[in-house]
Design a protein around this nucleic acid. Structure first.
Length: 635
DNA sequence: AGGATCTGTCTTTTT
DNA sequence: GACAGATCCT
């Protein structure tokens, strides 16, 4: 069995244990992705039909990479179904959803759409958004949905507790009504609806249990209760459930992830086999040692010690800068040095705890003329892109109100708040003749595009939308910035061309679904971009780089200070730091600023307590030139 | 109707 | 110090 070559004993065992429940506890850099792909390949070679194998990954990017690796090994043969939990949920709902009244073509509310809906509800209820933060309401509802709770259960349980809970109990069902009216589903629905579907409908469950004979789940430590259930349902008959994870890399508990799925695996499945992958193939001894030292400070974990045969490598560098700008300049210059010394720019990552830190870094990279890309500012979140997508959805279904409101104003066409209000309330007869003409013109465009959606291929259709909607001509009149926006809009057509092989509406619908489920890491694959990558530590999960900078190593920033009234989860912050450190293969740099500007005002900052978790002997120290004589830092 | 100007808010982390 | 929402002005 040639494909087993180069695997260690534990890895081989994981690949060859092809029946029954298996959990693999895999440390950072222990080759878990390789084990996963090899196992799937092995199953196929052993005669398991590819389409009966399921692999659930954490990001779309990871799914795409796995598909590529498998294609590489298998050639043109059929591939297993590889997707995120949300992609899997979508697939199941597409298959069975009509039986519980879910429309054949549904759209997916992203975070912004959901927030807008919450805002709308709060407004209807006459609640000042200052009193009730829509973000807070949404995250609370989202968490409840992630635990499988319903609005009614929530009301019975919490409504008496506090004013906030009372409001949420009222907002939630109204929010659901909006989502349903738009023939949409939100992120949580993509998990919770399949679960309730399988739970409540025995006939469907029987069918679904037969879909896959072997189920794989990656990053199992960051799954929530419902995701664990979903994996359980799909593997209930054959029990071939293979999960991979590392409790030390659990960084999404704030989103409802429970380590219990992984920790309780052996209890839940009595015949489960547990395999530990402790050998680190990624990093130098220095980095592995630092990782061990950091994570061992946590109490709530299982003892696990990573080892490696790699060379000692260079010491970890710690740089103290005067302020964020100075820190960024240092990072940019060190990046340049590394590139000149032969490191590929794609092998360099600059990490930070919070998104706002990217600004100073970006400016420094720009002024030092170093190519870079930023994750997190999603292409799909740009206004012009969202406008085009709204038009596309509206063209498919002219009933969609949220999209109609958006489309009618992009570009502006003399239809304002008042006219729109009359339209929404169905008071068409109150329109003045001039308004009537404008509305008719708008609706004619929508109708025309609807006809076109049935015959045009997806990429062509997106181009038509940009033209016919008037977005193109409006932006052509503008300056340089508008031209760039137009380019962005057109880029969407390029993305849509991936679906040109599918017929009209089906292709467009698949394209819309991918857009809605695209994550932060997917920016990495944006064509034509190269250079060092700037991103949050969360976004770096599952990735590896030759050289890593972890910036903003300051108390209150990393570990991040909890907001008032919430408790800070020190251990999760430390796991996050562990993730950051273990991304590095050869070079690890930490940096901090003695002054950090927050909301435009400067605050003196203390070095992060996490730095002290690493043995002093592993670190070399440097400080910014603009800091001379002021070295009073005690780390 | 839609742009210009002013104001208070906000920053964890995201499929 | 940016950015969205509210308010004012044309």
């Amino acid at each position: 069995m040639q494909h087993l070559q180069g695997l260690n004993d534990a890895q081989k065992e994981a690949v060859l244990t092809t029946s029954g429940p298996v959990s693999v506890l895999a440390g950072a850099g222990s080759g878990k992705t390789r084990v996963l792909t090899t196992r799937i390949y092995h199953l196929i070679k052993e005669g398991v039909p590819a389409d009966r194998i399921l692999a659930v990954t954490f990001t779309n990017k990871a799914a795409r990479e796995m598909r590529e690796r498998l294609t590489h090994r298998l050639g043109d043969g059929p591939l297993p179904f590889v997707a995120t939990f949300h992609g899997l949920g979508r697939e199941l709902l597409q298959r069975y959803g009509t039986r519980i009244g879910i429309p054949k073509y549904f759209t997916i509310f992203d975070r912004d759409d959901s927030k807008a809906a919450i805002r709308q509800v709060l407004k209807e209820m006459d609640i000042d958004p200052k009193e009730m933060n829509p973000n807070f309401v949404l995250s609370r509802i989202s968490k409840e949905k992630g635990e499988g709770s319903t609005p009614a259960e929530f009301r019975d349980k919490y409504a008496q507790k506090s004013f906030q809970s009372r409001v949420i109990a009222e907002v939630w069902p109204r929010y659901e009504a909006i989502v349903r009216k738009e023939k949409a589903l939100d992120f949580d629905d993509l998990i919770s609806l399949p679960v309730s579907l399988l739970r409540d409908h025995e006939d469907i469950r029987r069918e679904a249990e037969q879909l896959y004979s072997h189920v794989h789940v990656d990053e199992f430590q960051d799954t929530n209760g419902l995701q664990g259930k979903l994996a359980g349902y799909l593997s209930a008959v054959h029990n071939n459930l293979f999960v991979v994870g590392d409790i030390d890399q659990t960084i999404y508990t704030w989103r409802g992830a429970t380590i219990e799925n992984l920790l309780g695996f052996e209890e839940k499945y009595a015949d489960a086999k547990t395999i530990v992958l402790a050998h680190n193939y990624r990093s130098t001894k220095t980095i592995v040692a630092a990782g061990n030292q950091i994570i061992e400070k946590n109490q709530n974990r299982k003892d696990k010690h990573a080892v490696t045969d790699n060379p000692d490598g260079e010491p970890i560098r710690l740089h103290v800068a005067r302020n964020a700008e100075s820190e960024a300049r240092w990072v940019a210059r060190e990046t340049k040095k590394a590139v000149l010394a032969g490191t590929a720019p794609e092998e360099i990552a600059v990490l930070f705890r919070t998104n706002f830190q990217s600004r100073a870094l970006e400016e420094a990279f720009l002024s030092e003329n170093i190519p870079y890309k930023v994750l997190g500012t999603r292409f799909l979140d740009r206004k012009e892109v969202k406008d085009v997508l709204a038009w596309v959805r509206l063209a498919l279904d002219s009933e969609r109100e949220v999209d109609r409101v958006r489309a009618v104003q992009s570009p502006t066409r003399g239809i304002g708040k008042v006219t729109l209000g009359k339209l929404i309330d169905g008071r068409r007869d109150e329109l003045k003749p001039a308004e009537r003409t404008k509305v008719a013109a708008f609706e004619a465009i929508v109708t025309e595009l609807n006809e076109l959606s049935k015959i045009a291929i997806p990429s062509e259709f997106v181009k038509l939308v940009i033209e016919k909607s008037g977005i193109a001509s409006a932006l052509q009149k503008g300056g340089e910035e508008d031209m760039e926006r137009l380019e962005n809009a057109k880029e969407l057509a390029t993305l849509a061309s991936r679906y040109d092989g599918m017929p009209g509406e089906e292709g467009i619908s698949a394209f819309l679904a991918e857009s809605a489920l695209a994550g932060d890491q997917d920016e990495l694959d944006a064509p034509g971009k190269s250079g060092a990558t700037l991103m949050t530590v969360h976004a770096a999960k599952g990735l590896e780089f030759d050289t890593v900078f972890v910036t903003g190593m300051e108390e209150g920033l990393f570990p991040h200070e909890a907001r008032e009234g919430e408790k800070r989860d020190e251990e999760e912050e430390r796991r996050l730091f562990y993730v950051a450190v273990t991304r590095a293969k050869r070079r690890l740099n930490l940096s901090l600023a003695t002054v950090r500007r927050i909301y435009g005002t400067d605050f003196a900052s203390e070095p992060s307590s996490f730095i002290r978790d690493i043995d002093e002997g592993l670190i070399t120290f440097s400080e910014g030139e603009d800091l001379y004589g002021e070295r009073t830092i005690y780390i």
